[in-house]
Design a protein around this nucleic acid. Sequence first.
DNA 1: TGGAACGCTCGTTCTTAGCA
DNA 2: TGCTAAGAACGAGCGTTCCA
Length: 413
Amino acid sequence: MAKFKPKPRFKPYNHDQNAMVVINYQDQLQPGTFEHAVHYLIEHKLDLSVFYPKYRNEDTGRLAYDPAILLKIILFAYSRGITSSREMQWCCETNIQFKALSCETVPHFTTLAKFVSGHAEAIEELFEQVLLVCHEQGLLGNELFAIDGCKMSSNASKEWSGTFKELEEKRTKLRRLIRHHLKAHYERDEAETEVELDRDIRRAKTILSLDEALQKVDRFLKTNRPRMGRGKRSKEVKSNITDNESAKMTTSKGTIQGYNGVATVDKKYQVIIDAQAFGEGQEHHTLQPVLETVEARYKKLGIAKNIYQQNTVITADTGFANEANMQYLHERQINGYIPDNKFRSRDPKFQNQKAKYGKRHQNQTNTRWEDMSPDVGGGTGVRQHWHEQGVEPLQPAGPKKGPGSVAALLSGA
DNA sequence: TGGAACGCTCGTTCTTAGCA
DNA sequence: TGCTAAGAACGAGCGTTCCA
């Protein structure tokens, strides 16, 4: 029998209060915070006239939002991981810091989206202005640049990708399917019962959606050319019907359709001096364009005529290691440090890696990793294989989930 | 198990309103 | 009158769920 226990006592509260809260927006932008830095930079350091040519309301027309306001909202949103223009608008309505930055204006999400998409070049120029400010403030050490990449998903499904041969096969398969459904449809054309009629309507819808997919693949094959890989033995790489600039790539969490974002960071204050997106799974080919962009940018901004002759050290991980890159660094006399993919097997520090970390170990070939943890992938012991030659990882066991009908068809599922 | 329907996010386009 | 902002509608794309 449960013992009687008196109700605990809590502090009283009342929703029916008419309290007024006074907020000073300037107090929300405290020196030392990121929002203050964004506000200060845009108001006092950056030349926003790069945005002006796109406006044509000097004499007539409605007043436009000042690029300073839009930039503050967008940059602060990005710093908080918010990239959706609708969410930015919502933040301007509800968030006190956004209100302080936007001076309590609420630009429409289409205005924010248009600003980003319509001023891509000006925004890039602005990045260089920020870099120049960093240089003037002594935030760039130029002693060591670290290069690394991360893989980001694009808004495109990997099921819509393949080589031209594979896509042609998919087109043939779709044609065959449409013929099959049409034949069945004609055979049952004289439907009499409601059930038969309903089935025929469903079949007609299937034919339409298959035809749509067929047209999509067909249009792509007629208007595009096969994408060729780089290197000595360049072979065709998979194209993607939705976003052909992105690429199918292997990550630690499986295969994704996306981009390789490569950033270069100055060691002194971890200032990003270059950021580019490449539609390639391999990082090898991104080293040279990245180094050349940094060099050209430093020359253009007057930071250094030839940055790599100042004994600046370049570091990158094993993803960037190949013979061509080593040759390039050697010829250009760039002081670069890139470990090859067998450095672990030579380094005694990595000998006890398995015993120390348990979950991961590297086998003798150094091209294959195995995740032996039984608690990954729903207790099935997912084995994730990675191979330099581009072999896709095995999918985790369990119920198959994924894209809808046509995409599944295209993937050959 | 395959296919359709649905929900969700996001950007673009078109139309209308507002402003000088 | 001509421009920009705002609002509504639309379409693209993806992933999940439901059902035959």
